[in-house]
Design a protein around this nucleic acid. Structure first.
Length: 614
DNA sequence: GTAGGGTTAG
């Protein structure tokens, strides 16, 4: 590498002036000074150029950056490698991959920084290229450092030999770096390999906030809210203060567990970061999924900045909680605000149409979504429309739509159709759909049970026996129904057939009283939904203690009148419990919310927000 | 001059 040609020989005042502007990050004057230098054929030193490039990079000044690039490759000048590396980095920051690649290819020599910059450019979505880069780098004899590994690990999403790479990192001794560790934790989490993620975490002698956030986020994203919350407690005990990322993951954990009260407590800490978009998005999602639309609405309206995720969350949240009209109104406001709907926004809109029974409007959005919003209908959009048609009783059209789908129907698609068959009592189509689901998901106990119930309800006992036999042969067991309720910041769990709750006797006694009273106002246990083929009274007994009934009773006993009884369930609510909840909401003047795995049921004054369709 | 963590559906 030659030194700058005339810098030493000619310390021109032009160069000095240029250097001053560059070091002050006065981009405008620096660029003018650079033009003057070019006219006189003089150049500055490498550090000055590097400073100028960093300034362009920080200011997002693309054109200026390209001018500097041209300037330092002027005839007769050979920039030092670290200046070219700075340029490379600038292009990567501007997301100008082609420019970065061209520059990289032309470099006569490349060091670990050059390679790492390229790897980090690819490690967002071009994972193959990032890994190829690592291999080429080895071939050129350049050894990766901790920067390289933390970049390349981001590209390992979907890499089968992650363990191998991990071992390689251990051998080089670079595993001790916190950045590398957090990247490892993150990759293992993305793979849902939380044992290994926790292994890396536990071995760390010192941890920083980001590492805590990585592990908490890992559990929160893998639907293990309890462990995420435990780790959050450990983090606080270790003396760390939560930041935006921590709180976002904690909120996500609350969302998954439907812990409204804990979520409210977290909200207090969110106020410290009230300008943070992602955190606020997580907050409104938490309130929506915990069924408190008042809180969601007020948090949403207080947001200074809203993006497509904020709008989509709120539109879907309203729709899922039964406020279809408001969801569609909000969607109109979204369009007026200039925010562009995406794939997920449209799902919320179709969901709203479906729940409001707006068949024509749903069809309209479905047919014109490509033209209106540039979004191609995907499997989930078809699902919403199948739900819409099913709700309206147009089962033939729904089946026709499944056969016309551009993508392969999956088990969710068939399950949607099955739901429609159940409501409209179409036995033959239900059997057809259930068989399709079993083909695609032979391990799912729920479908076998459902199929067996359909047979039982139509007295097809031989078929019932056949399904049961298949289940036994395949070793499939029923998942017991399970409901959760939060009272005084404590979670109470009720499982069908489990009597371990300390107050179970009192709950059962009070529940029996309640059932007597609701039967007095015309409630009849709906034995069609019983999961076993029992007879008469026995049937009623097994219904009587469904986990959601126990949870409702416990809520009525322990929550003050004005409080909503909020329950989360692991399985879909059964028809009998649904009727029961409606009657109780009217008779006891209580508001009850039950969130099952895919729908919300807001019971008030004897009516449910789902419109008795789920 | 190069690196790590958080949000919407399913």
């Amino acid at each position: 590498m030659k030194p700058p040609l005339r810098y030493v020989a000619d310390p021109s005042p032009l160069v000095n002036e240029f250097a001053n502007f560059c070091h002050q990050w006065d981009l405008h004057r620096a660029m003018r000074a650079m033009d003057a230098m070019e006219r006189h054929g003089v150049f500055a030193d490498a550090i000055t150029y590097s400073e100028l490039i960093k300034c362009c990079s920080a200011r997002g000044a693309v054109q200026e950056g390209k001018r500097v690039h041209e300037h330092i490759f002027c005839k007769g000048y050979e920039p030092k490698m670290f200046v070219v590396n700075t340029l490379l980095n600038m292009y990567v920051k501007f997301n100008l991959l082609e420019e970065a690649e061209d520059l990289f290819d032309e470099m006569p020599e490349r060091n670990v920084v050059s390679w790492t910059t390229m790897i980090s450019a690819y490690s967002n979505k071009l994972n193959d290229k990032a890994l190829k880069c690592l291999i080429l780098m080895f071939r050129e004899g350049v050894r990766p450092n901790m920067f390289t590994y933390s970049s390349v690990l981001r590209a390992c999403d979907g890499l089968p030999n992650l363990r191998q790479l991990h071992c390689g990192i251990i051998k080089t001794g670079l595993e001790s770096d916190v950045f590398v560790r957090s990247a490892l934790i993150d990759v293992y989490s993305k793979w849902s390999d939380l044992d290994n993620a926790l292994g890396v975490f536990d071995e760390m002698p010192t941890r920083d906030l980001v590492v805590w956030n990585s592990i908490i986020g890992g559990f929160a994203q893998n639907s293990d809210g309890n462990e995420a919350l435990n780790l959050f407690k450990r983090m606080k005990r270790a003396g760390f203060l939560a930041d935006q990322a921590t709180l976002t993951s904690v909120l996500r954990a609350c969302t998954g567990l439907a812990l409204l009260e804990l979520g409210r407590q977290v909200h207090v800490h969110v106020l410290k970061f009230d300008q943070d978009l992602i955190l606020n998005n997580a907050l409104i999602d938490m309130y929506c999924k915990c069924g408190s639309l008042e809180d969601a609405n007020s948090a949403f309206s207080r947001m200074v900045e809203k993006d497509v995720i904020s709008w989509s969350t709120m539109v879907a949240g309203l729709a899922q909680n039964g406020y279809s009209r408001q969801a569609l109104e909000l969607f109109e406001s979204m369009k007026e605000s200039g925010s562009r709907p995406n794939y997920i926004t449209v799902l919320g809109v179709l969901f709203a149409c479906s729940h409001a029974g707006l068949v024509e409007k749903g069809w309209y959005y479905f047919r014109s979504m490509k033209k209106l919003f540039g979004v191609d209908p995907g499997r989930e959009h078809y699902g919403c429309l199948i739900d819409l048609l099913g709700r309206a009783g147009r089962l033939d059209e729904a089946v026709k739509l499944i056969h016309e789908m551009e993508c392969e129907p999956d088990s969710v698609t068939w399950r949607t159709l099955l739901g429609a068959c159940r409501v409209h009592r179409n036995v033959d189509l239900a059997i057809y759909a259930a068989k399709k689901i079993i083909e695609l998901e032979p391990e799912d106990a729920g479908t076998y049970i459902l199929l067996s119930n359909i047979y039982a309800n139509t007295q097809r006992w031989e078929d019932v026996a056949e399904v049961r036999k298949t289940m036994t042969n395949r070793g499939i067991r029923k998942t017991p129904g399970c409901s959760w309720i939060e009272v005084d910041k404590q979670i109470h769990v009720f499982i069908l057939g489990d009597t371990s709750h300390p107050k179970i006797e009192e709950i059962v006694q009070r529940l029996n009283d309640l059932i007597e009273r609701v039967m007095g106002v015309g409630y009849v246990p709906d034995t069609n939904f019983v999961l076993q083929d029992l007879e008469g009274e026995q049937k009623e007994d097994s219904l009587r203690y469904h986990s959601e009934k126990l949870a409702i009773m416990f809520g009525l006993m322990n929550l003050s009148r004005e409080k909503t009884v909020r329950i989360r369930k692991n399985l879909r609510i059964c028809g009998d419990c649904h009727v029961f909840a409606k009657v109780v909401s009217r008779m006891e003047h209580r508001s009850i919310v039950i969130r099952d795995p895919i729908r919300y049921h807001h019971f008030q004054d004897g009516v449910c927000s789902c419109g008795d369709y789920w």
